[in-house]
Amino acid sequence: MTKRNKQAIAVIAIVLIVFSIVVFIIPFRKGSTFWIAYTAELLAVALQFPVFKLAYGNAEDLKSKVLGFPVFRVGYIYLTIQTIASIILFVLGGTVKHFPAWISLIVCMVILAAAIICSIATDIARDEVEKIEAVQKKDTEFIKLMRVKSQNLVNENKNEGISAMLDELSEKFRYSDPVSSSATTESETKIDILFGELEATVHSGNESKSKVICEKLNTVIDSRNNICKLNK
């Protein structure tokens, strides 16, 4: 059990103990309404741990923790609402003669159902956000890789005659639209092949061929960027 889970259990236990002491010290009438409201409160407290686990159980980095917060927030909002409802029911059960127990049961069930629905919906929304981010990350991998490779080629180049062209190429990658799509696949395949050829010619010191390939690459990069603009 992780330190975070132990801390969560400790907080839940403290809340449960304090609430129980308070409600039994105050002379509420211990009828059906009291026990329904008290049981609902105990359930709300107990459910905080699974909600906490759902929110942060698989969180490995800061982004995962941030995305888990809305799920956790549903849990403590549920606990807060149920606590207020329980106190109101304690008072009504003690002051209103023959207060219907079924009203207490319905109120507590509605609060619980709403909390469960919100938790599920929030967790689904978090999963969708993570999926979208994963797709976006994959869709930007090509240009990010080319930015790194082009800058590395600039750093490795020892031929002053093509330095300016390599710098221009690196800048073009830097300011290219990073998001790939099915429409840019053909262009990116050409870019990948041409850049491989460029690396080989630069390393071999073939200045004239390097210039020709740089020109071709610039043309294909411009074509790809135009495709990106048209598809937005």
Rank of each mutant, 00 (worst) to 15 (best):
M1E: 03
T2I: 01
K3D: 13
R4A: 11
Q7T: 14
A8Q: 03
A10P: 04
I12M: 13
I12A: 12
A13W: 06
A13E: 04
I14Q: 09
I14K: 15
L16Q: 10
I17V: 14
V18S: 03
V18P: 06
V22K: 07
V22R: 11
V23P: 00
F24S: 12
I26K: 06
P27A: 05
K30C: 09
K30F: 06
G31W: 09
I36E: 04
Y38G: 03
Y38F: 13
T39F: 08
A40V: 05
L43S: 15
A44M: 08
Q48V: 04
F49R: 03
P50H: 03
K53P: 02
Y56T: 00
Y56C: 01
Y56H: 02
G57Q: 01
G57D: 03
A59I: 02
E60S: 14
S64T: 12
S64F: 05
V66D: 02
V66W: 05
V66S: 06
G68F: 01
V71D: 01
V74Q: 09
V74T: 14
G75C: 05
I77T: 15
Y78L: 07
T80P: 10
Q82P: 04
T83G: 01
A85W: 05
L89P: 07
F90G: 01
G94E: 02
F99Q: 09
P100I: 03
W102T: 12
L105D: 11
L112C: 12
I116K: 06
I116P: 02
T122Q: 11
I124E: 09
A125Y: 11
A134F: 11
V135L: 10
T140G: 03
E141N: 07
L145M: 13
L145H: 13
M146H: 02
R147C: 08
R147Y: 01
V148Q: 08
Q151F: 07
N155M: 15
N155C: 11
E156P: 05
N157I: 12
K158M: 06
E160C: 03
I162D: 09
S163F: 15
A164H: 11
M165A: 15
D167A: 12
F173P: 00
D177N: 10
P178T: 00
V179I: 07
S180F: 02
S181Y: 05
S182K: 09
E186S: 12
S187F: 00
S187K: 01
T189E: 08
E197C: 10
A200K: 11
A200L: 06
S208Q: 15
I213H: 09
I213P: 03
L217Y: 00
T219Q: 09
T219Y: 05
R224P: 00
I227N: 01
N231Y: 10
N231T: 14
